[in-house]
Amino acid sequence: MSPTINEYWSAVLKRFRFRFMLELSGVSKSYGEKQILAETDLQIDAGMVTVLIGPSGCGKSTLLRLMIGLITPDRGRVQFEGADLSGTDILSVRHRMGYVIQDGGLFPHLTAERNVALLARYLGWPESRIKPRITELAELTHFPVEGLQRYPLQLSGGQRQRVSLMRALMLDPDVLLLDEPLGALDPLIRSDLQVELREIFRTLGKAVVLVTHDIGEAGFFGDRIVLIREGRIVQTGTLEDFMQRPADPFVTRFINAQRSPWDTAPGSES
């Protein structure tokens, strides 16, 4: 079904009003003396997966939390659809974003179904709208319907991440923010979920920001990779850019730091 003229024009107008879905300009963040993020600019566009990568404590999670307003920048501004987060109703902005964290962040006192529907129920959606939406999401995320009545502690790690994704997608948000969503899973499940997740991202075509420290995962998901080190963006581009045109020696070191299963001992390549 092709879009109607009206839908087309409203999309064009939207496009005209703001350039990016999410735009961070000159944001910085410190905790006491310790600077977590130096002045940083970053734009996130719709229909694209942006991967934030870097060593632990480099500031990539901080960047993600700034985007959803869980923390506020010391300087600079964060804009969602052209409006400054500090000046808007942060709750309604969050309703248009989905957020998934490493362990899922599921509420242990609620069943999977209640976790997923929590916000919709709070907002007063009728059950006639909630039920089909959950069925649809369970299908999308390959989550077994019979698991919906289970509590988080009764689910496996992979299932919990599926439920967490369903919860993030419940209100059909424009932006999906994922902080190491597969970090706590064992390799086999992780590899399966990576494939499924990429499938889902492609189906949905949303603005996706994913934080990881695994370069393989970054290359697998990322339309664009942002490498961060000690609170600064070192390079932005595709995995190929990183290999062909590294911005500095750290980029090369970071890419090569992940051992292939075939080089068994240090120095075996020489």
Binding site: R65, I68, L70, I90, L91, S92, V93, R94, H95, M97, Y99, I101, G105, L106, F107, L118, L119, Y122, R167
Partner: peptide, 8 residues
């Protein structure tokens, strides 16, 4: 954090 990020 999850509860806050949901927008409740």
């Amino acid at each position: 954090e999850s509860a806050e990020a949901l927008g409740l």
